[in-house]
Write a protein that binds this DNA or RNA. Structure first.
Length: 569
RNA sequence: UGGGGUGUCGCCAAGCGGUAAGGCACGGGACUUUGACUCCCGCAUGCGUAGGUUCAAAUCCUGCCACCCCAGCCA
């Protein structure tokens, strides 16, 4: 894991597109209309991650929907850590989550909460439920409860403790809290409908006994509320109007409503579900990502091959590109898998508009200009971004010996090749037009040096006689070039089957997903670079500075290889 | 076999009774100081399927089919 992530700029979102409406807007509009459920009220949403892992691009969709909807309605969006299961959670994740949301470009103001803040209130509300004879303390084992829940076609069977007197449940519940019983021995269960076709309504467990150290409340509690009971209360206490979540919670909505309806709460939030994001060639579950981290298959949650926001950040993704991606895939209730190529497209689009370019040579071969004075050095002004003159120029030095990309030279060109080969003219980007005269090779036949003669009339790459130069290649001055270590990241998973990554992900790890190139060269203009920048690299794609330390021996770059590149191999 | 959802181009996705938007991918062309970018052009007689209602149906009705989620004291 690198210590610094310099690539954090919020690259200026060129006219972020107006978010397209979706079915959620329709539902909210109806709620807000006169006579509607929330007529005249302020839209209030929340993003409620469980702090048990890092946020990934799937969460980005939820964040953008939750915060985005609030923004569009001039409402509010809270950030809430849904920390009701201490055995899986940790403070490390809380900080990472906050950082990633800020990086994405969203802010929760002073509305940062923890579900654990409400434990006392939840406890009191549970007592209300018991008093209303809507909940009871069950003494069945987990196995007995499971059996009693029935099957798809047979109804549930009432627990023998279901009709326990209210006073007795109240007493037992208090003693559960006091720590009189062992983990897993008693539960508090709602009394709803054992005949429901929806399992969630067959007397769901509301509280379990669990002795685990909570990252915030420590050992204050040994009973913890279940999601289905806690979530609606959290939403209501925060005055949330619209509780947006993913499709798998549709079945839970009746229970969500039941809790809201049977308790005295300050609001009646409405749950709306949408489809979560799926991307092919990518795994998108915290459980699986954790296995990659703990199995040391990747360097950490922020490994550039990970689909986590911190990984994508190191891979060179900009916040704007991710926001744009999520915005353009839309929101619906269809289980969908978006093409990885679309994510890449959104990045390239942003980088192409906003990234400053710089030259670098990854697989170098020496180019000697035999008619250029050995002691001469020139400086060219090169535009930082052809699309943005306001980004200015940088100075690039030029001399007799340069580094060029090995595959920009071919001793015997294949048909259609129009870069450097003996007898051919090419343009050194922003430098001179040169004509190749030959090359040297080592004993194994590898090209070690390429020779060419430059045309003094073509300074800056211009051709006063208007002759067309078909090929233009990048280069770096060997006198001033800085050595760089470039890390090429291919997709973490092999790509022969788009869905294999999700299905049998451990069997499809690409062993060559990380390649370290130690002898690359970059422009001297990168010395001491502090800001992040993305680099247009060769003829396709970009790479980004993952970390730059001017005092280090070498600059370190990351470049993720697009799937397209993989297919070309 | 119970409950809850979803089915429009290879992938997303508009459409809400008036005769199939857009993006990605793909193919062709132009342009180009990086074979990139940009720009043109092409790409569903068809909306899971079978019927029905209507002057008119992706949109309404009925049946059928397919796929996803649910039997954690996870979220």
């Amino acid at each position: 894991m690198s210590e610094t992530n310099l690539n954090k700029d919020n690259s200026n979102l060129t006219e972020e597109p107006a978010t397209t409406r979706n079915f959620i807007h329709d539902l909210i509009d109806a709620d807000l209309a006169p006579g509607g459920r929330f007529a005249g009220m302020t839209v209030h949403t929340r993003f409620p991650p469980e702090p048990n892992g890092y946020l990934h691009i799937g969460h980005a969709k939820a964040i953008i929907i939750d915060f985005g909807i609030a923004e569009q309605y001039n409402g509010l969006c809270n950030l809430r850590m849904d920390d009701t299961n201490p055995s899986k959670e940790d403070v490390e994740y809380v900080e990472a989550i906050k950082e990633d949301i800020h990086w994405l470009g969203f802010d929760w103001g002073d509305r940062f909460y923890y579900a654990s803040d409400y434990f006392e209130q939840m406890y009191e509300l549970a007592r209300d439920l018991i008093r209303k004879d809507l909940a009871f303390v069950d003494e069945q084992t987990a196995e007995q409860i499971r059996v009693g829940r029935g099957t798809l076609t047979t109804p549930g069977i009432a627990s023998p403790w279901r009709n326990r007197p209210v006073e007795e449940s109240l007493d037992l519940f208090a003693r559960m809290r006091a720590g009189e019983f062992a983990d897993g021995t008693l539960t508090l269960r709602a009394k709803i409908d054992l005949n429901s076709g929806n399992f969630n309504m067959r007397d769901p467990v509301l509280y379990r006994i669990l002795r685990a150290h909570h990252h915030r409340t420590g050992d204050d509690w040994c009973i913890y509320p279940m999601y289905d009971y806690a979530h609606p209360i959290e939403d209501a206490l925060e005055l949330v109007t619209h509780s947006l979540c993913s499709l798998e919670f549709e079945d839970h909505r009746p229970l969500y409503d039941w809790v809201i309806d049977n308790l005295d709460l300050p609001a009646k939030p409405r749950q709306i579900e949408f489809a979560r994001l799926g991307i092919n060639y990518t795994v998108m579950s915290k459980r699986k990502l954790r296995r990659l981290v703990e199995g040391n298959i990747v360097s950490g949650w922020d490994d550039p091959r990970m689909p986590t926001l911190s990984g994508l950040r190191r891979r060179g993704y900009t916040p704007a590109s991710i926001r744009n991606f999520v915005d353009r895939i839309g929101v619906s209730k269809v289980n969908s898998t978006v093409d990885y190529a679309f994510l890449e497209h959104c990045l390239r689009e942003d980088l192409n508009h906003n990234a400053r370019r710089v030259m670098a040579v990854l697989r170098p071969v020496k180019l000697v200009l035999t008619n250029y004075p050995a002691d001469k050095t020139e400086t060219f002004e090169v535009e930082n971004n052809p699309e943005k003159p306001e980004d200015g120029n940088r100075k690039v030095t030029f001399s007799r010996e340069l580094w060029i990309e090995a595959d920009d030279f071919a001793e015997t060109p294949v048909k259609g090749y129009f870069r450097m080969f003996p007898g051919n003219e090419v343009r050194l980007k922003s430098g001179y037009v040169v004509r190749c005269t030959g090359c040297d090779k080592d004993a194994d036949g590898n090209v070690t040096t390429v020779y060419a003669e430059y045309d003094p009339e073509t300074r800056g790459g211009n051709t006063p006689d208007k002759r067309k130069i078909k090929g233009t290649i990048h280069w770096v001055d060997s006198k001033t070039a800085l050595p760089a270590e470039v890390r090429l990241y291919d997709n973490l998973f092999t790509v022969e089957d788009p869905d294999s990554a999700e299905r049998d992900f451990m069997d499809h790890i690409n062993p060559n997903s990380l390649e370290i190139i130690a002898n690359a060269w970059v422009e001297s203009s990168l010395a001491g670079t502090k800001a992040s920048l993305s680099v247009q690299f060769m003829r396709n794609g970009y790479f980004c500075l993952d970390s730059v330390d001017s005092s280090a021996e070498k600059l370190v770059f990351n470049r993720s290889v697009s799937l397209k590149d993989s297919w070309k191999k």
